[in-house]
Structures are given as structure tokens and as C-alpha cells.
Design a protein around this nucleic acid. Structure first.
Lengths: 220, 220
DNA sequence: GTCTATAACCGGATAGAC
DNA sequence: GTCTATCCGGTTATAGAC
């Protein structure tokens, strides 16, 4: 202990026993497996046995050498989930021309979020599915990350309103949550061999926000 | 037994031991409690103890006099959930003027479905939250009900397309599931004391789907 | 450091007293 | 018909062998 102690440790609670490079690698594999299982089963449905089996090598109780408890393991998966989605959104926005109008930036974020959940990352998928299932204690610890991401979205919407691109009378929070809901639910029904690709689904959702699916009568 | 045996019993498996009026009443109370708990915890998070506690009077194992197993209890909650939402949708459509265009009928159904999960019924809420968590065996038995409801929605969309009110190039299934997702997710974040009422949220979703929230540039 | 055995616990389900 | 005591299986977590 003492001066080598990581910043992360004091910020977000202990991340136990990660001494060697090999150990860190194993830790990653466990996290990946956990993300996959949680994405499949949800929080309450996830058992350590199934995670262990997914890892391949280990038996159930081996995980405790890398994680203090089931809750700590889940917690890190959730944290990474938001992180991935957040990162994808920021990256997508950064890829736009600097002069891109706010609404286009919002659209890019929505697209990125949908793709994160559908194809990019088990972590994002796990996180989306899990919200509202985790015990308050865990939630309290990851809450801040979620809120930060929420505010990010909210600013994108607000900017589009300020620019006169979105009706300012709309409840920003409700708008955001409706979109997030459609996204978080998507893994439940999306099939790789379905009629629409993930990109097409993302585009459809964006179209919802911008102009809807109705055909405008020629005049009036 | 013998000739009094209900049709329902042969159709959907046994509904055990409901002889007296008082018994039937208790059965209802248990179902209501189960719906409430499932809406709160999801399928995997629901325990018989919590349901019993919610009922008030009973201890955990008492439920077995009214239901063959946990799964059967859940199954009936699910079935009722679809039924309620379905019924609400049909009723809302029936309340429209007979000449109402297809798109308006679809909108009424969306509104009704949103209100079902937000304010009308624990059953509808429970059902929305649970999909995709239940074991395949249970799912297989309620599947038909869900599909029927899905087809109902699909026909509404198709009719609006035929009438030239919705862009026919859109993937009907994806459209439906995005909407359902936004609805099923809503109970997760909706608060009675929030900035928008349930009705306003329902209206926002309808607007979303039909014309989007963006402001149309005057020309072009 | 990794794994197996096992302890402690909890949830679903059954039996039988009242 | 209702409730309590109890069994059984599965889950988290720990101890200790290798």
C-alpha cells in the first residue's frame, strides 16, 4: 500500500488484487464475460456460475480473486457501459464538420448510441438493459456517470432548440428518455438476420426525431 | 369436476383450486399484488415472499393454494397485461369518429398503450417490463397473445401506409418495435410529479412518430 | 494465482397442523 | 382454506489445497 495506491481506488472504491499483467488480462476476460451474460440475462438473472462458464476456464468462486463481490463486478460493467456509449457519441460528433448544426450533432449522438447498444459493445447493451434493476447501493455509486451522460444529451437538445431547430416547447427530459427507451429496448428485438440492419434502425430513429414517418400533405 | 369444467382450463392449462367466491376474490388480490411486484422488480427479481407480503395477510407458501407454481402465477399476470393494453387500444380506436383516417387510429393506439403502462394498469406495466426475461417455457405459452397484439399494431401501420399517410418504404416491424420500446421503457423514468404528465408524454411520442420534433424550415 | 470443497443463506415448493 | 415448518436446490462467498 502507501504511495503506489491508485487514484481510481480512492475515487470509486477498491479494485482488489491486480498485481500482474497476466492477472489484469484475466480480469478483462472476466469483465467481458460478465458484460455478455448481463446483456443476455439482465442484472437479477445473472449468476456468477454463468459468468465463470462464459470465461471458459474457471469455476464459480474463482472470480473472487479478481473482484471483491458480485456487486463490484457488475458495477464496473455498468460504468464501462456508459463510458463506451459516451465515447462513441463524442467520437461521432467529432467526426462531423465543425460547422455542423446542433440538430445534426444530436442525430449523430443518437445514431452512435443505438449502434453502441446493437453492435459495438456488450457493455453498452448490458448497461442499457440493467438500469432500474440494480440495488440502490450499486446505483448510488454509478449514478454520477449516468447523470453526466444525461446532461451531455440534454445540452445537445438544448443547443438544437436555441438554434431554432427543435420546438422549444418540448420537454427536453421526456424527449431524451423516449429516445433512450427506444434504444435500450432495441436489443430485445433486433436480429442480425432481420429485415433492417442496425444502421437502418438507427436512421429510422433519427428520422423520428427530425421529421417523423408521416408523409406531409403537399400543401397546407 | 366433470361438466362444470371451464373452457379456459382446457385451453390454457389448469387454473387450480378456485371453488368459492371468496377464494376467487383472494385469487384476484394475489394477482394484483403479483402484478405490482413484477412491475417493480421485473421477472427475475420477483419473489413469492414479496408478493405474499404485498397481499398483506399471507405467508409465502400460502399462494400455492391458488396457483400451481410461481410460473403459472406470472404467466397469468403477463396474459392479463397484454389483454389490458390491447383492450385499451381497441377502446380508444372505437371512440374515434368512424371516418377517422388510419394514421389517427394508429396514434390513438399508441396513446392508449402509453397510458396503459404509465397510469392504468400494473399488469400492463409488469408485462412491458418482463418481456425477454421470462423462461422460454412460459414465453411459449403467452407468445400467441403477444403476437396477436403485434399483428394488430402492424395492421394499423399497414393501413396508414396504404392510405398514403405513412412512408411505405419504412420497415413496419422496426417502426413498431421502436415505439413499443419507448413505451415499455417509460415507467422506468416517469414520475407523477415530473415536468410532463402521462398524457403529455403520450402526445409527445405520437408527435415524434408522425411529424418529429424538429421545426421545418419555412421553405425548401 | 488458480481451482475445488464447502459453509451460510435464500427462494421455491410440499406436507400437514389447525 | 389458511398458515407454519420444513425440504431441496441453487447462489454467493470463504477456506484452504495445489
Amino acid at each position: 500500500m502507501s504511495h503506489v495506491k491508485r487514484r481510481a481506488e480512492s475515487q470509486r472504491g477498491p479494485e482488489p488484487i491486480r498485481r500482474t499483467a497476466r492477472g489484469a488480462l484475466k480480469r478483462e476476460k472476466i469483465l467481458d464475460a460478465a458484460a455478455k451474460v448481463i446483456a443476455r440475462r439482465g442484472y437479477t438473472g445473472t449468476t456468477l456460475s454463468e459468468i465463470a462458464e462464459e470465461v471458459g476456464s474457471a469455476g464459480a468462486g474463482s472470480l473472487y480473486h479478481h473482484f471483491e463481490s458480485r456487486e463490484h463486478l457488475v458495477e464496473e460493467v455498468l460504468r464501462r457501459g456508459v463510458q463506451v456509449a459516451f465515447e462513441q457519441s463524442r467520437r461521432a460528433i467529432a467526426a462531423l464538420p465543425a460547422a455542423a448544426p446542433p440538430l445534426e450533432r444530436l442525430n449523430a449522438a443518437i445514431r452512435a448510441q443505438m449502434l453502441s447498444v446493437l453492435v459495438v459493445s456488450d457493455y453498452a447493451r448490458a448497461t442499457g438493459r440493467t438500469t432500474g434493476q440494480v440495488p440502490v447501493e450499486v446505483w448510488a455509486r454509478v449514478n454520477a456517470d449516468f447523470r453526466r451522460y444525461g446532461r451531455f444529451y440534454d445540452r445537445l437538445i438544448a443547443a438544437a432548440m436555441d438554434a431554432g431547430e427543435i420546438d422549444p416547447k418540448i420537454d427536453r427530459s421526456a424527449l431524451r428518455m423516449l429516445v433512450i427507451g427506444a434504444i435500450n429496448w432495441a436489443p430485445e428485438w433486433y436480429r442480425k438476420d432481420g429485415t433492417s440492419s442496425a444502421e437502418e434502425i438507427a436512421d429510422l430513429l433519427v428520422r423520428f426525431v427530425t421529421r417523423g414517418v408521416a408523409i406531409r400533405k403537399p400543401d397546407r
